[in-house]
């Protein structure tokens, strides 16, 4: 009798393991291939997402007000510094507007409707974050009904933070570039060096210990110096051109000495996201 029950338990464990692996494989395959998850999953996620807002909105509001109090303490100093920057910014902004206008006119002149740099922004709030140490994933409150499509890049503050991994009707999951899984952070990026040369490359990972993004497979001999700005190149897929990624922190040879490997300091604080912007390109 004892033996029988032991065997039965073993069978249950093995069956559970097999079913678990089958389910995982199927869902990974669906995640990689399909643009949206199955309808039933979308439906469930939408319902949970709506319920979650009941919990998340007060929680986020509370933390927001606590944060506001602590920020109040160094407001004065910050104000002084920001005032200086604002006066410089006004100048840049006016020039930017003039250039954008001129650009638009020139595009009309040559009948070029949309180039790689054009995108519209959908801003959305972060509802919650996956409680997991390797899936750096946040859930935002806009989905396919607002025009979000899988693989669109997501920005926060001044820079790129991730890409849309799963789209439901009213919410979607965003994989941050700090996520180190196989498909998370492969963005085509480029650097314009001080001498005016353009260097193309692909983001290839995130270094946990230094908090820097790595960019690999650069075979050019152009000299890249510390502080060069890295932006998306708009090549391949739905990412528009010119989204700011970060600044070059260090250039070194890669593990095999064949190409250059760059460490990039990300432009935004990736561990503290509240409002994000999804960049929508017209296709």
């Amino acid at each position: 009798m004892q033996k029988f029950s032991f065997n039965r338990r073993l069978v249950i464990i093995i069956v559970c393991l097999i079913v678990s692996f089958a389910l995982m494989t199927v869902s990974v395959a669906i995640r990689n291939k399909k643009s949206t998850p199955p309808l039933i999953q979308q439906f469930g996620n939408d319902i949970v997402g709506l319920t979650d807002r009941v919990v998340a909105v007060p929680a986020n509001g509370l933390s927001g007000s606590v944060g506001a109090v602590s920020e109040l303490l160094n407001t004065y100093q910050e104000n002084q510094q920001l005032k200086q920057q604002v006066s410089e910014l006004a100048q840049t902004k006016v020039r930017d507007q003039t250039l954008a206008k001129e650009n638009k006119q020139l595009k009309q002149e040559i009948k070029l409707n949309d180039s790689l740099t054009d995108y519209t922004a959908i801003s959305s709030a972060v509802i919650t974050r996956t409680p997991s140490s390797w899936q750096n994933q946040v859930i935002i409150n806009k989905g396919s009904s607002a025009g979000v499509v899988k693989n669109m890049p997501v920005m926060s503050g001044s820079g790129l933070v991730g890409r849309v991994a799963e789209v439901n009707k009213t919410n979607s999951k965003v994989e941050l570039i700090t996520d180190n899984n196989d498909s998370a952070n492969r963005f085509a990026v480029q650097i314009t060096t001080k001498s005016g040369k353009t260097v193309n490359g692909v983001l290839s990972g995130y270094n946990n210990t230094t908090g820097q993004i790595t960019m690999n497979n650069i075979t050019t001999k152009a000299k890249i110096s510390k502080g060069d700005k890295v932006v998306t190149s708009g090549l391949g897929g739905v990412t528009p051109k010119g989204l700011y990624v970060g600044k070059v922190a260090k250039a070194s040879g890669d593990d095999y000495g064949l190409s250059t490997k760059l460490n990039i300091n990300p432009a935004t604080d990736l561990s503290d996201l509240n409002i994000v912007t999804v960049a929508v390109t017209k296709q």
Binding site: T51, A59, L62, I127, T128, R129, T130, G211, S271
Partner: peptide, 17 residues
């Protein structure tokens, strides 16, 4: 749901690389 909210609101401290 609180698990997610805690992870989100304290993400700067909890997921401090």
């Amino acid at each position: 749901l609180l698990d997610g909210s805690i992870s989100q609101n304290f993400s700067a401290h909890m997921f401090h690389y």
